[in-house]
Design a protein around this nucleic acid. Sequence first.
DNA 1: TCGCTTATCTAAATCGTTTTCGTTACACTA
DNA 2: TAGTGTAACGAAAACGATTTAGATAAGCGA
Lengths: 333, 333
Amino acid sequence: MSVKIKDISKHLGVSVSTVSKALNGYDDVSQETRDLVQETARNLGYRASASARNLRRGRTDKIGFVFNNALTFISDYFAEIIVGATVAAEQNDNNIVLYTNEGDSPDSLLNLVQAREVDGFILVWNHVPKAMIEMLLKANVPFVVLGRRVRHPLASYITPDNYEGALALMQHLFELGHTRIGFTTRPSMGLTNEDRFQAYKDALAKAGIAYDADLVVETKIEPLSGYHAMNTLLDLQKPPTAVFAFHDFVAIDAQRAALERGLRIPEDIALAGFDGLRLSLFTSPSITTVAQPLSEIGRESVYALLRRIEDNSLPPIQKTLPVQLRPRQSTQG
Amino acid sequence: MSVKIKDISKHLGVSVSTVSKALNGYDDVSQETRDLVQETARNLGYRASASARNLRRGRTDKIGFVFNNALTFISDYFAEIIVGATVAAEQNDNNIVLYTNEGDSPDSLLNLVQAREVDGFILVWNHVPKAMIEMLLKANVPFVVLGRRVRHPLASYITPDNYEGALALMQHLFELGHTRIGFTTRPSMGLTNEDRFQAYKDALAKAGIAYDADLVVETKIEPLSGYHAMNTLLDLQKPPTAVFAFHDFVAIDAQRAALERGLRIPEDIALAGFDGLRLSLFTSPSITTVAQPLSEIGRESVYALLRRIEDNSLPPIQKTLPVQLRPRQSTQG
DNA sequence: TCGCTTATCTAAATCGTTTTCGTTACACTA
DNA sequence: TAGTGTAACGAAAACGATTTAGATAAGCGA
């Protein structure tokens, strides 16, 4: 059996309360006994039982990380964020507990909330339903939405700057002389898509280029959606000279479509993605993209959540982190 | 405040013990009250407090997943395994808690053990020091090493079949007519490297080809190691016609070195990697590799660990999962 | 009717901490 | 000298479940 507080108490002939206080930094214990307690605790290899401690303190020092397991697909995203979050949590004496949540069922999350296995949640989903946000707020559960903006004024989130990133990307394409630029949307991605799309339109307007609805193609979350989108664009009477794909996987698919038609990239058609997945660096040509600060997003989400756990009545934390344009061969040659 | 067992008890006018038993499937409670209890539990939204339950039962229903955060680098590996593990854990009413363990310090792991925050550990490291294995065995902590073989007869592990995979890869190269095959080793990877290397040598022997030490180059875990290795091999007086890289990242680096020299792949030099990272599919040419059953490895590790948690005195579980050759352009054209 | 078994329930101990509220002893002040 | 303040400690009550050991009542056979 493992060593308990009682063992230290007996070993030293002091009460358990004194031992506990000595270990937890209370000030009504003499320096002498404090040292003694800490030393024997170390010698005996004592570590407080997490369950007992949690039960009494009403805190678990654990953070729930709820993800939609479709994320495996974009493994860079998942891995870097989660590692960033884990490290940040550990530095604050917390740990991350993983939960998958398939089908966005509010019930299952509600369960987690009520079991109080964790002090709060980081939600990593493509789309967080409004009903879920309302439910979490009503239940007064600390939570942070990671990786996407949420429209609710009371919800906390940490998001990459999709708008500015897309703007920078458009600027990059303008500088290379493109005026006819295609865009692949993905409406199912909610505000992430909306922000990138809005930046696309705003950039055009600011550059004095008329918006052409023909140049905007919708893609779904499925293999080859980028492939088809690119073909649609190239089949236009007046095809674009550059394509801004909603994200890197779409871009990779789109690239294949263009190459199969014998087009040269970027000479015949330039191409850019978004998110900064490592994949986009290894394609040939490598694909221009906008990199998200993944590990920082993970870290900041943990910080934000910890603050909310500290005091959930504070105003929500809504943070937009800067992204970085990565010009590569697919636009620059 | 959340609803407790006492609330149900008061609500129905029965004792807390009856409620607890009704919920936990004891047989000394009538069907009638059992139904009643379960229904009100549902209505009131009751979920047992994890800490209280854990404290009393001496189990946490949580599995520690201890990883070396260098794993971010091979994000496919990390993401797929961890998602597989999480799903498997959830299906068995368990959850995964993440721990990073930098510097292989035995102390920090010992701490985790003693805090009994989890019922057991899955270790995901490049190299698990023998001292750590001994320590865990001595402390009688259930654990499973994931992704690599361990020499200790009492340690449990789940590993891909590195030997058979490498053998299949060599066979593939032989069939394509190669007899002069380079190999990049990575001694720091312990048995994983050893198994792949041994298969390389055994395959040569079986094919009646003399082993040539010049064709074996050592690489380290650092960027460009594959690049340098390939250059070394190509600088030989009699360079190989094919190179088997220890793993996909090395292969990607190696590929770049060959392409920069103006060589054609696979005509001038064929190339293969190992592990089946998605990256190797998107390079140009795509790289032949041996795919690990990642999500299965995660899942099986959880199963194995749960069985050890059930009874840690059983003989260790040592499982080798089949891998799959993925022939691609870098060998076949 | 008595005793025995069985079915159902309850009281109370327990898990290992933290934390509140006393208690003691001693020094110091007026 | 009585009173007061303070430093250091301890007893005991939580925290919210599970589980053991008893209690009660009903059912049944003799």
